[in-house]
Amino acid sequence: MENLNIGILSKRKTMMAGKLKSCLKNKGFNISIYTLENLVINETLLNHDFYILKSKSLFFLYAGFFLEAKNKVVIPKPQISFIQKNRIQSHFLMRRIGLLTPEIYLGTQETLKNQLDPNEYPFILKPIMGSGSKGVKVINSHEEINSENNAITYLEKYIQGIHYNVYFIDEKICTLIKPPLANEHVDMKKIETPNDVKELIFKWKGYFKGNLLFGHLDIVREESSGNLYVVDPGSFPEFTNWKCDSSPVESICNLIIDNYRKTKDN
């Protein structure tokens, strides 16, 4: 077996990054994890065979783009992670693919207060560059909109309904019911994946033509219409609530190695 040197770009050395390191190490590979403590983005990174982009925080994305420009394989592809990080990009991409997304509003605090119809509340406030539940909150009235220096605020129409956290790894889909706006780590109930959710996931994955190996989507089934709205994509979740067959870490480990080999062969 080839002796690969693999770098992992991750916010932390524990959790999924740590588990991936162990898994890959057990397969005989050399693994280094780069966190914000030791990540210097320059030519010194080029001494690894390829990289795993665990985090989509800005500086890890920068590292991913830098490495890709230097012809290093980065999995998942930085552009795919970036699209999912930037809410403007992901919103319009989903619309282009034909997926439903909540109506969005952008404006300064003053504009939103003056021009939003009070009957339209509640909204969900989200950071433009963000993922998951960090910085996300429900806004029930004008008074709750507060931004520093009258900065541009991003709001989404709140969709009332059932919230799904849907993981996918390769062809496997694992669907859970989650409390609204909860992060990935709260306890969730596994359900049989509804057919329309399956179709939605295949549509999303299909757009990336085999380059989306795994990930998750937060989806809401609107109570009034039964329609599915995608409210948040995730490129590399922790899979904390994976309650389906097989180990997500082992599956992801194998997928990444297979993907690297295929990329090198091409």
Binding site: E103, I104, Y105, T108, T111
Partner: peptide, 10 residues
């Protein structure tokens, strides 16, 4: 004008 415009995608 950025400071006065409300962007609504629909």
């Amino acid at each position: 004008i950025e400071e006065e415009f409300l962007l609504n995608d629909k």
